[in-house]
Amino acid sequence: MFETVESVRHALDGQQYIATDEIATVLFLAESLGKPLLAEGPAGVGKTELSKAWAAATGRELVRLQCYEGLDESKALYEWEYAKQMLYTQLLRDRLANLLADTQSLAEAADRLGQEEDVFFSDRFLLPRPLLRAIRSDRPTVLLIDEIDRADAEFEAFLLEVLSDFQVSIPEIGTIAAKQRPVVFLTSNNTRELSEALKRRCLYLYIDYPDTEEELRIVRLKVPELAPELARQAVEVVQSLRTLDLKKSPSVSETLDWARALVTLNTRSLDSAMLENTLTVLLKYEADVERARRALRRVGGEGNGRTYH
């Protein structure tokens, strides 16, 4: 489908996603080798966005599995729809009575009922969760397993099984193999170490904060209303904030929020008052805000080519 790295980048461009050489190359490899792609990096650099853009670019359906602590198979793979089964047995009570009417013994009745068991453990009562949905889908899908580091280690082990052959076995029904091998994206914010086994099966992509020019391109693309001059200033501020030692550095999505805030506030120039007032859009810890204020004041005071007043 995609013959070159360039075509991958082009397809992503079409979805308003600016891909670096690295992203395009690794994505191309994931696609052509048929391997899951594990994207790591700080929060808010567009890891999730990448899979969305790729699904849109390739016209695939996006199936998303958001991980959290305590996520288990019944939430990720499938569950029997008990309530529906219950309802059906209630409604079919008469039929069941008829069916079992001419049986002589309890054992015989149980046997006969056992023959009909398939009715209750069939597709009809199966509630597919994201993983099964991606595997059973007739259309090609992009499976996004978001923030895998939040799930427990046990779940990771279970996931390994699914990712290695893309088939699941449901005891009552049998093995279901993928009709279309989904393209799998895993994202991680690196809050814990993933297992070696999982990493081994994936291609690895580390997405870092973009540099000034890249980030500027992103801002221009996503918030075209912001004046070019101002956009550059804003991006430079964000970039300089990232060099500080903060509890949480501003992410790209926060840069975009800030850019939108500046548009909403009708900002003409980025003076220090405006900067201080809107800093909380970028920074989410009081200590960070304080620190950034001090640092920016210093920069402004020295006026070394970058003044914000």
Partner: peptide, 9 residues
């Protein structure tokens, strides 16, 4: 990049 994506995790 192709070496990096495949070898370093």
């Amino acid at each position: 990049l192709s070496l990096r994506a495949t070898l370093v995790k």
